[in-house]
Amino acid sequence: MSSFLLGTSSQGRTDKAAPGRNWGPLLTVAASIVVLAVAWQLTATLWPSRAFPPPLDVLRVMIRETASGEIPYHLAITLCRVAAAFLLAIVIGSAIGIFLGSHPRADRFLDPWVILSLNVPALVVIVLAYIWFGLNEVAAIGAVAFNKIPNVIVTMREGTRALDLRYADMAKVYRFGAFARLRHVLLPQLQPYLAAASRSGISLIWKIVLVVELLGRSNGVGFQINLYFQLFDVAAILAYTLAFVCVMLLIEILLVQPLEHASTRWRRRAT
């Protein structure tokens, strides 16, 4: 017990964060990207082809299209669709998953539906959504969300089954309100499952959004890629792809990782 007290403030707490930032891992990542770019450049120089442009050409297209506002516009449209589909999938999938995880009889009844929808190909859902609901935004976003919802259900169902009932008992005895129960008891326990569902969700969803755009929308990154495919402009296809991957990486670094870091703070301090 005395070891806790050493060097602590009156609140009994010292932050364990390192004083200086460790740049080693970042340098490794940077070096890895440079090596990839050099290898790409070398390959494109050794075997020149219209189908495989060097990185500098792609960069040039990227700058040109960004300056003209094309890339930002289509990127923004696609990101909105990704965000909408993601939110829908997480909210609906979590609600169903938590319900099934805590109601075994309903789960036994609905499990075949979940398995069925898990195995319906994304393309079938998209095509059917466009046929049934028309070539519109609701059909597009709905189809993407529908593709992801079964995965979220399965993950959150597992999370709910793994809930520690002692915390629920404690919350009941101390009369936690519904909101306090959700915020302090349920969500922290489901957080790892929610994080896993979100992470796999975002990577799946943005890929499906491109297909949806390719098949039935007149804007967005998927639409542009289809356009440049018709024109056989590989540099433009790669420019759009790279721009989109960069944005998704930025979201991961600036949003997902800090959020995860904050929500698992207690885990790192516990020994």
Partner: peptide, 24 residues
């Protein structure tokens, strides 16, 4: 528990965690 208020339960010994449960 005066000096333990800002600790997470995982940082406490079983005896201290029991005291916290008693405090609650």
């Amino acid at each position: 528990l005066g000096k333990m208020r800002a600790f997470y339960p995982g940082e406490l010994s079983l005896g201290l965690a029991r005291r916290a449960a008693l405090a609650r």
